[in-house]
């Protein structure tokens, strides 16, 4: 076989032809990926919050925030049906989780709007959602829906959320560990509350 024969033989092998449906779908696939990337980039600019998801949280947040606040106030019961309001939070969470499968680390409720902490890659292990409420010595309390192993940042301090085999939830910070019934981290006037989202439904 000489070079010309080889070239001819190589050129005779055409790539497989794609269907018309494939060519119709291809630009849309690229567009979807670019759109997803743009949304991710926008979410990264605003720490963790995805602008296009505002409407979800605007629907889900008001009821959920009230319920969580009421739940965590000792000695008081919610005035409205608890199941309904937690279901609202859960529905919002599930919609976001469906949009970012394996990427949702934490949803933080604090400030004016909730925001999402997302992993760059879909590598967040699946585990039951839990909620934590962290109140710094000064400033607003923050409530977050998160998972064991994830981190929540409040007032410049980072807390790792961990659950043990019997379902107790711990918060780890550089300054120490908080667990139910123990003194707050670093002896400061921080207040913590934790619970499992599912168990309240």
């Amino acid at each position: 076989m000489n070079n010309d024969e080889l070239d001819q033989r190589l050129r005779s092998a055409s790539p497989p032809e794609r269907s018309e449906a494939y060519w119709r779908e291809f630009p849309e696939s690229v567009e979807r990926r670019i759109l997803a990337e743009k949304q991710r980039a926008e979410a990264a600019v605003r720490p963790g919050f995805h602008p296009s998801l505002k409407w979800i949280w605007r629907l889900a947040l008001p009821g959920a925030a009230v319920v969580i606040a009421l739940l965590l106030m000792p000695g008081q019961q919610p005035k409205t049906p608890i199941h309904e309001q937690l279901s609202s939070l859960r529905a919002g969470y599930e919609q976001v989780a469906a949009l970012f499968p394996g990427q949702l680390e934490t949803v933080v409720f604090g400030g004016d709007e909730p925001y999402l902490q997302l992993s760059d890659l879909p590598d967040v292990p699946s585990s039951p959602p839990l909620f934590v409420r962290i109140c710094p010595p000064s400033g607003k309390c923050v409530t977050a829906v998160s998972f064991s192993g994830q981190k929540v940042r409040v007032s410049g301090r980072e807390f790792e959320v961990l659950a043990n085999g019997v379902g107790e939830i711990f918060l780890l910070a550089k300054e120490g560990v908080w667990s139910p019934g123990q003194a707050p981290v670093g002896g400061e006037n921080w207040r913590f509350e934790t619970g499992w989202l599912e168990r309240h439904l």
């Binding site: 790539p15 497989p16 794609r18 494939y22 291809f26 696939s29 690229v30 990926r33 670019i34 990337e37």
Partner: peptide
């Protein structure tokens, strides 16, 4: 697509690579 196919040897990989090139 022809390039990615000849380089990858797989239609599925070629499609992924072509998409990635545009992205």
């Amino acid at each position: 697509h022809a390039l990615t196919y000849r380089m990858s040897g797989s239609e599925a990989e070629a499609s992924d690579l072509a998409q990635e090139a545009f992205v």
